[in-house]
Each structure stands twice: as C-alpha cells, then as structure tokens.
Amino acid sequence: MYRFPILLFLFFAITSCRTHYTLHHTKVSSVALDNIHEPMADTSDVNFMLPYKNQVDAIMEKIIGESETALEKNSPEGLLGNFATDACMQTLANQLKDEKIDFCFLNNGGLRTPMPKGKWKMGNVFELMPFENELVLVYVNGKAVIELCDFIAAKGGMPVSGISMEIKAGKAQNILIKNLPIESEKKYCILTSDFLANGGDKLTMLAAAEKKVPGIKVRDAILSYIESQTTIGKTISVKLEGRITNAK
C-alpha cells in the first residue's frame, strides 16, 4: 500500500486549506444513442464522413461468396472455428507447396463476429477478422504438441483443423494428427497466428520455438479461400466433425 512520509503529508494538509469546493451531491444516469430518441444527426458530420464512407462501401459491399448456414463460434467445437482454421490450412497449402502443415489452431477470441447464412460481403470478413495478424508456421516436436493440446483442452477447446482430441478433466487425450497418433520425437509443423505464436492468450510454450513467417495475413488467407470456392462455383459448407469433444 502506498504511503507518503509524514512530513510531506503535514505540508499538504496546511496548503490544501485553499481549496474552495467540496463534493455535495452526485447524480448518475446514461443516455441511449437512438436515432428516434435523438432524431437529428449532426449533418456536418455526415458530410464530413461521406468521402470515407463511400470508399469503405465501395470495397466492403462487394459480394464475395455464399454460405449454406450461419457460422457461429462454440466450444469445444464450433462451425466458425472449423471454417476459419480450414480456410487458413487450405490457402497456405496452396501457396506454400514445399511445406507440409500438420495442423492449424486459432483462438475464439480472435473471431470477432458470426458469419451469416447466405451471401457474404467483403465487410463480413473484415468484421470476422479485423486484426492485421499474420499466419506463422511453428515447428515443434510431439511432446510440445501434447503440451499445446493440454493448453487447448484447458481452454475448453479452440478452433482447430487437421487435429482431433478429447478433453478429460481439462487435459487432452486420444490426440490424432491427420488421423494418426502423435509421435513424441517427430517434428510437426503447426499453423497459427503471430498473436498466439508469440505468447498471446497466455500461451507461452511456442514463444521460443522455431518459426517461419510467410507474410500472409489471417484475413487474407480466409478471403483467398472464400474466393477460390466462389471461383469454382461452390458455396461454403461447414460441418461439426467432432474435432474436439468432451470425453464421456
């Protein structure tokens, strides 16, 4: 606890006699911002914003794809998480032919909004993934992967692709990577965001690991996946597959 020396305090006590006002009464309230409640928007602001808004709308209103269902996040497994991690895996597999990426994981906190059923606009993807985070490849052995899976289990599940596990008492079990059991000495290549790779979400175990940064943003990877699906005439179709389940 913070304490000042007594002498200093005495000085303050004498000089503070000059203060003239003291709190008498407090009234607290808050006012909703509702355009019926407050019908007149400040028109000079509207005009001021217009050139910015026009530029935003020109890009963000563009239709880029279509989804069969609404995608929301959920734990231990959610449609939105499956979609985002699959999209990152797919795009990176296409763009980095020399890398064999074993699995991908992201954090639910980074997926900022659900994606709607039906047509998707560019703006939807910016709202889903507003951050400028980049994808990172992290190389670790099987032992470290097990530790990571325990972290994922302790969180009650995180968005994953290419890996499956069960959660029992906050620990991971029956871990399968591309349907194969984990080998503790094997080197694995994990795809994730720079945020998580560098210790975000209190995930410290990957911070010192060997990494490669291909220079692709998470959002761009997701956009690229959606556009590739649209180009071949496909809609986005995501299902729950039991990637992470709570053990019975």
Binding site: T22, T26, K27, S29, V31
Partner: peptide, 13 residues
C-alpha cells in the same frame, strides 16, 4: 451505443 452522463454538484466551502 450509449453516452454516460454524471452530474456532480459541488458546494463552496
């Protein structure tokens, strides 16, 4: 979506 508003009434000593 909301603007907070708090009124303090101070009395001169």
């Amino acid at each position: 979506v909301r603007l907070g508003k708090i009124d303090f009434i101070l009395r001169r000593k």
